[in-house]
């Protein structure tokens, strides 16, 4: 990977989010070159997420392009208090990718209106940003791998396959309440695991 997802020595250099915020400010002023900086730091991660969700390289690149253009057009809408630029950007990529997935699926199977709305960069305070930023992929995967399989399945079907709780219940032949409960418990379990990792890492 050419990108430094968690730049080595970030503790000694400027906070990457400071650079991201500076680039956002430049974008807001119409300085498009700032896209290079943002893309350089986050393009690979953005593409990785888009590809994981859409499963198609061309679609994934379209998603990434639209997401970065969306960041440019909405640069003024970013609120620093609600999480890092990176988290915001990845949420946009995620939503665009799920959107693309649902549109494609809708033409095949889904009747109108059964696709759920994603929380659209809902900007829930990402109090965990630093915690998450300090974890590498292995640590997160290990945490995800350690929560009960059924809970993990519910989370993955929602986050990566873009299925709603109702759709998941139908697909798995489960009562809706069971799916809701698995999702909630899954998120709580993952959170607890991540806190454990963080504490273990010191």
């Amino acid at each position: 990977m050419t990108e430094l997802d968690d730049p080595v020595g970030s503790a000694m250099t400027a906070d990457p989010d400071d650079r991201d915020q500076a680039d956002l400010a430049r974008l807001e002023r119409g300085e498009l070159e700032a896209l290079e900086g943002l893309y350089g730091r986050h393009g690979t991660m953005a593409y990785s997420i888009a590809l994981r969700i859409t499963g198609d390289a061309g679609t994934a690149e379209d998603v990434v392009q639209e997401a970065f253009l969306g960041v440019w057009r909405n640069a003024g809408r970013y609120e620093p208090g609600r999480g890092s630029v990176r988290t915001w950007l990845m949420a946009i990529v995620h939503h665009r990718a799920i959107d693309s997935l649902r549109r494609r699926r809708a033409t095949v199977a889904l009747p109108e209106g059964t696709d759920g709305t994603t929380p659209a960069v809902l900007a829930l305070p990402d109090v965990w940003n630093e915690v998450a930023a300090g974890l590498d992929r292995d640590a997160v995967q290990s945490a995800l791998g350690s929560i009960p399989t059924r809970q993990r399945e519910a989370l993955e079907l929602a986050y990566f396959a873009g299925l709603t709780q109702v759709e998941i219940a139908e697909r798995l032949g489960l009562p809706l309440g069971t799916v809701k409960s698995r999702m909630r418990l899954g998120l709580l379990a993952l959170r607890a695991e991540l806190v454990g990792h963080r504490d273990a890492d010191g």
Partner: peptide
């Protein structure tokens, strides 16, 4: 719960 969601992207 919302804070956990972005972490999924890291997997």
């Amino acid at each position: 719960l919302g804070a956990v969601v972005p972490v999924l992207a890291r997997t």
